[in-house]
Nucleic acid binder design. Structure first.
Lengths: 217, 217
DNA sequence: TGGTAAGTCAAGCACCTGACTTAATCTCCC
DNA sequence: GGGAGATTAAGTCAGGTGCTTGACTTACCA
């Protein structure tokens, strides 16, 4: 697939070099704390404008990193989605929602940086929108939400939205926490990414199926 | 309480000016995207070193902002803690955990910036530690955790830690989401901070009391 | 009331950043 | 085999940054 010609191979190789260097630096020091120059140097490019040449602005670089991973995550999600079929068990749909990211991180092998990168981008006031654009285009994600809604028909729309946000936050930030703990050799609550996803699934199922105490609205 | 002398009053006034200006800029544009110079100017200080003079480094400024709010939040938490006494109902303890931040934000009046600021600082690789230091010293927080543990004696320690992290993430980021929606005039799932806290409490109670599916550890 | 110290202001410093320019290098395709 | 075009290297530039310096203002207190 990649690099039909020698030239294209080289180019995509340096692009990949820049992407991984940027991902690492961003995760460890913060997206805004790292300059494009530093990324170029860390990628072994003597040219200090290599990032600008290949990707444009820093926002474009962030988008490229996000997209690279989203492709793989989307594959996993589609596979899980196919496995659950038309289940009416909340747990099955929650697994579709929860497992792709941890499974992707497990597949990358240690160490990883994407979860921390992701958590940062998702909370930054200006970068946030990039991530939303990248992830909300997923067709399988839409189907999962629909499947979940079918399992929980009596849940008010507002609460549904609220709990969707909650689930998203938990998935992203718990993965980032675990990734950071692994990077720093700090103890983690779970032995593996798979177990971590199980714990996350327990929580998210409970969260979705929790009774709604009425408010004065 | 503040400003025994005229001089001290002026000083604490400019300090306050800097703190609120910084909080607003940090929340809206990102902590690292805003320079100390910009903060000084936004605070109406012609001097571009005002931040440096009064607070030192940017990390110190962040710490000062965090501390200012933590004091008020701690008061609310202590009050709620006294009200729950020695309850054995998980919901009571969860309310102690969940309500202080939304209640504090409600008391500040609209618009607020602290929740967004907080979410950023909590996910930044270098600033994170500051926030942890500031919030983990809370004695009432320790008592709440202990009370919660008493209600859930059979929960494994690892899962306890895991779900504590989850609750923390939910509290911070859901508050930030709501705050952002209010700032942008976007619809919010809940009509008030109090209702938002109720929804959050529903989720966190469910999360803590969820059954633990065994893993291979 | 005058000295003192704290706070404010303005200017300058070295450094870093993104953007631009120019030159060298190399693959591709005719 | 050679020119065209794309990629990398290297140097430059203006603007912004944190930090330092020194002079000025002002409230405090002996």
């Amino acid at each position: 697939m990649a690099g039909r010609t020698v030239r294209e191979e080289q180019v995509s190789a340096t692009r990949e070099l820049i992407l991984t260097a940027a991902e690492r630096l961003f995760a460890e020091r913060g997206v805004l704390a790292v300059s494009n120059r530093q990324v170029s140097e860390a990628a072994g490019q003597g040219n200090n404008t290599a990032v600008g040449y290949h990707f444009g602005t820093k926002a474009d670089l962030v988008r490229a990193i996000a997209r690279k991973h989203q492709v793989r995550i989307e594959e996993i999600r589609a596979r899980l989605l196919a496995e659950t079929g038309d289940s009416t068990d909340v747990r099955d749909w929650v697994d579709c929602l929860v497992r792709p990211v941890p499974e992707h991180l497990a597949a990358l092998g240690s160490p990883t940086w994407f979860a921390r990168f992701c958590a940062q981008v998702m909370t930054d006031p200006v970068l946030q929108q990039i991530m939303v654009e990248e992830s909300m285009t997923s067709p399988s994600l839409r189907k999962i939400v629909e499947g979940l809604n079918r399992c929980l028909p009596e849940l008010p729309a507002d609460v549904r939205a609220e709990r969707g946000e909650m689930a998203r936050h938990l998935i992203v930030h718990m993965a980032a926490d675990r990734e950071r703990a692994l990077a720093e050799n700090t103890p983690t609550p779970r032995a593996s990414w798979h177990d971590a996803a199980t714990g996350l699934g327990d929580a998210v199922v409970a969260l979705w199926t929790a009774p709604v105490t009425p408010t004065g609205r």
